[in-house]
Write a protein that binds this DNA or RNA. Structure first.
Lengths: 260, 260
DNA sequence: CGACGATTTGAAATCAGTCAAGAGCAGTGG
DNA sequence: CCACTGCTCTTGACTGATTTCAAATCGTCG
């Protein structure tokens, strides 16, 4: 029964983008896979490798990142439960970035060939996966904008909003409180800020009663104001369909205001 | 005869990623389309619109960009001849960024429905298009790294390398000399630098004999050194297949050194 | 020729980075 | 049960790359 639910989150995630038929769902549920436990910091895929498997994140978090020649590191996205973590790399034959767990994680490894097969036989599944990679690209663009054109305060506020919303959508948080197993240094690598400055800015946000911090847990105190500070506009997450189909979601603080 | 060649560049571009059969090519060639001339600065797609057409850039250049709330603008990519410019937006139903011409351009507009049809009927065409969007996402990630983790000098050098290589691959330049109808302000928006600093840095690169400038034409004087300065590693462009099939390309200065 | 936008140059202001040291909090092993 | 060790987080002082503001020059086009 554990086995039957392994793909539930993946189906749920793909269903955000497109309506999947029972056959589509069954096909996903029947994907060959290997479950594996990973320790914190394990690499799921390394840059320049030819991936043989595509990885579904069942539990835990992962980051996608790449290092610059001068030693800097840029994190491109933070993956959460239910994310199909390296569709990109699998389909491109050669990984152009690293994927690494943040903490202990449980993953399902899907052979790349099986992905190609299901895409060929079940066009809607293929479309959903394509959509998934497109949304991922949209997030990358937003991060480029974040890092390029927002100051430290805006950047951090923006990232916190994104995480809160994505965790909410994934059914793992209530949109207000969440915990992230990331050091401030890793935060800095995602935002292109020094760890020291991340620290100061987080404290400033708390000082301004926008958030509350306890260890690595964050509580958002004022959703609307944090979104304003972070110049956060959910549209880039392309959740339109999710909002139509999920009544709970559409009632969250993030979407009721509708001042977008 | 003009008509028959309209899709040549698109076919050439998609063939970079995957082998297309004659049928696939014929199907692309038979896509319904409207040719349109655009003036400099015209919007091809506006953020938040629902695109009805997908745009193939026949002549001229375009930029994809989005503004932040505080007035800054981030350019996500510079599109060149032959690029299918808004697959993303067309498939996502709602545009999450703007696409705008840099100079006068000639484009072919393809109805979104026709794209969906060809993808459904010709899986290899669909794969090639998917691949195209994946490479595009890879470029977005590289730009995030560029903007986040490289200093002004590195950033500019990196962008110049990317443009030289992409124009070479598109058969529009020799990999050394090229012309770009961009102001330094637009350069700055792509690199998240102020126009003033773009200017100073370009002059410094010329001063160091890495490039030569005349108006908006650039000549690269030392490919290897510029790549080193810009921390430029072509792999993110995923040109492996192109290098195997195109002997001219593989002999260019960018690929012979092979110090990657 | 005149005018407007783009580029160039200079000087001052600033956000964020670096360096360095101390404090807090595990987990380890004696 | 309590040092000890090793991270992360926090804080302060200094530094520096880049921005901003402002003015001059250049180039192109009507």
């Amino acid at each position: 029964m554990l086995d039957s639910s392994i793909f539930d989150r993946m189906i749920q995630k793909l269903s955000l983008w497109i309506e999947l038929s029972d056959e589509d769902r069954a096909a996903i549920g029947a994907l060959p896979h290997t479950i594996r436990m990973l320790a914190a910091g394990d690499f799921i895929v390394r840059e320049d490798e030819e991936p043989t498997h595509c990885c579904l994140l069942l539990e835990g978090n992962a980051i996608r990142h790449r290092a610059s020649g001068s030693g800097g590191r840029q994190i491109f996205s933070i993956q959460i439960q239910g994310d199909v973590v390296d569709l990109h790399n699998s389909l491109l034959h050669r990984a152009d970035h690293n994927i690494q767990t943040l903490a202990a994680a449980r993953v399902a490894l899907l052979p790349v060939g099986a992905i190609r097969d299901i895409v060929a036989k079940y066009p809607m599944v293929g479309q959903a996966m394509w959509y998934e990679t497109l949304v991922d690209a949209s997030i990358s663009r937003e991060w480029a904008l974040n890092v390029g054109r927002r100051d430290a305060r805006e950047r951090i506020a923006h990232l916190l909003c994104e995480l809160a919303v994505r965790l909410l959508v994934a059914g793992q948080a209530n949109g207000t409180d969440f915990y992230l197993p990331m050091t401030q240094e890793q935060f800095g690598d995602a935002l292109a800020l020094s760890p020291v400055h991340v620290n100061r800015t987080l404290m400033a946000l708390a000082e301004d009663d926008l958030i509350e911090r306890r260890f690595r847990s964050i509580r958002i105190l004022d959703h609307a104001r944090l979104a304003r500070v972070g110049d956060f506009d959910v549209r880039y997450l392309h959740l339109d369909r999710a909002l139509q189909t999920d009544p709970i979601l559409s009632q969250s603080q993030w979407f009721t205001a509708r001042k977008v």
